[in-house]
């Protein structure tokens, strides 16, 4: 833990009414925060979907905070490098970052030997996006439902090849979850990202692909790809024709979630203020419209609820991992 001496200097209690931000009167404390630009760490490359969301969010949050937000990309090791930077940053409120569930909570046990951060060093702030998993086949595939698909795997496990977009990532975990639920063994082919996997599916080189709704939606809408199932509780809007796994008797819930977090140890006042700002942005209809356009479904989970969300997911996945690790050790 770092000593928070800097903090006392940074956070100067001012007179009430010097709050820079409109609509934040709930903040009991009028603090001289922020007084300089805030760094927002994105653990993935510029131009990717996490980065796009971060930059749009920053545009709205800057207005609320009255300070500049500098988006800094620290990509690498599937997000780990960025999260190490986030965990080690000064907890003064001038560094926040995006975290991607479920990957952020699995590295501490799947990479136990080498991982550079622990979940105790990161305090989740608010979830913004939950992008459900989708299992899809090419439009000319003989499989119409999950039952067809499961039947084919049971008849001849070698005839079905399914892609995931990164080992131990949310797609891989979703497919594993489904395989367990259906009592089948899937043979996986690893791809790096959505583009190559989609090309392989459309070209007929693989049988099925497991990806995220936001990436698959346009291909499904155009009828080139058929969604067999979406792994959410209810059907999702841009692809409302695609039934959920649950409807078809396979109770699988899987998604990639994106939200914000700060280094642990940020003073409660600052945390509350950032939370309030995040809430303002996420509830802003204009922000929601922009997310809609990108097929990114909003799923607002604030404060302690988000902390619990990450912790629950961590515990559930860890017990799965201990039963049957999905990465060779």
């Amino acid at each position: 833990m770092r000593v928070q001496s800097n903090l006392l200097r940074t956070i100067v209690l001012g007179a009430a009414g010097t709050v820079l931000v409109g609509g934040l009167s709930t903040s009991a404390l009028a603090v001289d925060y922020p007084s300089k630009p805030i760094e927002m760490i994105v653990a993935f490359g510029a131009g990717g979907s996490t980065d796009t969301m971060a930059r749009i969010f920053a545009k709205y949050a800057e207005k609320e905070l009255g300070e500049r937000i500098v988006v800094v990309n620290r990509p690498g090791a599937g997000g780990e490098i960025g999260w190490v930077h986030l965990a080690n940053a000064e907890p003064d409120g001038y560094t926040l970052g995006l975290i991607n569930s479920p990957v952020v909570e699995v590295y501490p046990f799947t990479r136990e030997e080498t991982v550079g951060y622990s979940l105790d060093e990161i305090r989740p702030l608010a979830n913004v996006i939950t992008d459900p998993g989708v299992l899809a086949v090419a439009a000319d595939s003989p499989y119409q439902t999950l039952d067809d698909f499961v039947g084919a795997v049971k008849d001849d496990p070698e005839s079905v090849v399914i892609s995931h977009e990164g080992l131990g990532g949310d797609d891989h975990l979703a497919a594993l979850n489904f395989a367990e639920e259906a009592g089948i063994d899937l043979s996986f082919v690893a791809y790096n990202g959505n583009a190559e996997a989609t090309a392989s599916l459309l070209g007929g080189h693989i049988t099925a692909f497991e990806g995220n709704m936001s990436e698959a939606a346009s291909q499904i809408q155009e009828g080139k790809v058929r969604g067999l199932a979406v792994w959410s509780d209810e059907r999702v809007e841009p692809i409302a024709d695609v039934p959920t796994g649950k409807e078809q008797g396979y109770d699988v819930q899987a998604a990639a979630s994106r939200g914000f977090a700060v280094p642990a140890g940020v003073p409660q006042e600052v945390y509350d203020m950032l939370l309030a700002v995040t809430r303002e942005v996420v509830e802003d209809p204009e922000f929601r419209a922009e997310m809609d356009q990108l097929n990114m479904p909003i799923n607002a989970i604030y404060g302690q609820d988000y902390v619990d969300f990450i912790n629950d997911s961590h515990d559930r996945l860890k017990s799965l991992w201990e039963k049957d690790p999905w990465i060779e050790q």
Binding site: A77, E113, T114, L167
Partner: peptide, 20 residues
């Protein structure tokens, strides 16, 4: 780097900068 198929670390010496 990290083996994309098995997750085994190859010559990374635990350096996360070399995972990719």
């Amino acid at each position: 780097g990290l083996d994309a198929f098995t997750g085994v670390q190859r010559f990374t010496f635990g350096q996360s900068e070399l995972f990719d």
